[in-house]
């Protein structure tokens, strides 16, 4: 006995199916992205069940956002690095130009 409330994986599948037409009309590459977002929902199924939150779509979107957030934070420090590199490249370019100018002279 027990398990009257549908398991979250089933609820998740329902939500996904309810968006069938939306998905169908997406471009192929967007469909793939769509599928990956729902996969994030699956990844966080334990916290979703535990939450006792009655709107599954919220949980699916939050799960996707969490993964995206992690992704962003992972690459955020890179931005500084890229900036430094860009500055260095610019400086090098300047130097090269300078050298060229000198060479031409």
């Amino acid at each position: 006995m027990g398990r009257t409330v549908a398991p979250f994986s089933q609820v998740l599948a329902q939500e996904e199916r309810a968006l069938n037409q939306f998905r169908r009309a997406l471009r192929k590459e967007d469909q793939d992205a769509f599928d990956r977002l729902f996969a994030f929902g699956k990844h966080h199924v334990a916290p979703s069940v535990y939450s006792g939150h009655p709107w599954p779509m919220d949980l699916i979107l939050l799960s996707a956002l969490i993964e995206q957030q992690k992704f962003i934070e992972k690459f955020l420090p890179l931005r500084t690095e890229v900036e430094i590199l860009m500055n260095e490249v610019a400086a090098l370019r300047q130097e090269i130009n300078l050298l060229r100018a000198n060479g031409n002279r």
């Binding site: 006995m1 009257t4 409330v5 549908a6 329902q14 009655p54 709107w55």
Partner: peptide, 12 residues
């Protein structure tokens, strides 16, 4: 609930 079928998500 004799069918063990009350689905709270419907009400939600």
């Amino acid at each position: 609930d004799g069918a063990n079928a009350f689905d709270p998500y419907i009400v939600a």
